[in-house]
Amino acid sequence: MPKVTYRQHDGSEETLEVRAGTSLMLGALTGGVEGIEAECGGSCMCATCHVYVDEAWLDKLPKVQVLEDEMLDDTASERKPNSRLSCQIEMSDALDGIVVELPESQI
C-alpha cells in the first residue's frame, strides 16, 4: 500500500499506509492524524483539510479545480503556492512516499 507522511506544524511526523483511491484527508482522519478538521466530510466546502504539499510532489498531483481554488482562498492559515485541500488529493501508487505538512490551524 502506498505511504503518506503527515508532518505536523511542530515538525513531528507520522507515516501511514493509505489505500489507493482514498483521499489524503480521509487517510489522516482514519489514521488518527491530528490537525485536519474536514468539517464538510470531503465535499470541498469548508477548507478545513488544508495541507502544504512537499514541493517535490506538487507536479504529480491533479490540477487544482475551480471549487478547490476558491476554497483555498478561505483557509484559516496562510495560502501558499503548495497549498491544497487534502480531500481533493486521491492516493495512488504514483504518490507513494508523498509528504504533506499540516498548517498551524484549520479553523
Binding site: 482522519l29 482514519t30 488518527g32 466530510g41
Partner: peptide, 14 residues
C-alpha cells in the same frame, strides 16, 4: 462505510 466515520475509536480514547 468506514469512510463515513469522523474519527477512529482510538481517537476518542486518546
Amino acid at each position: 462505510r468506514e469512510a463515513l466515520l469522523f474519527r477512529p475509536a482510538a481517537f476518542y480514547e486518546e
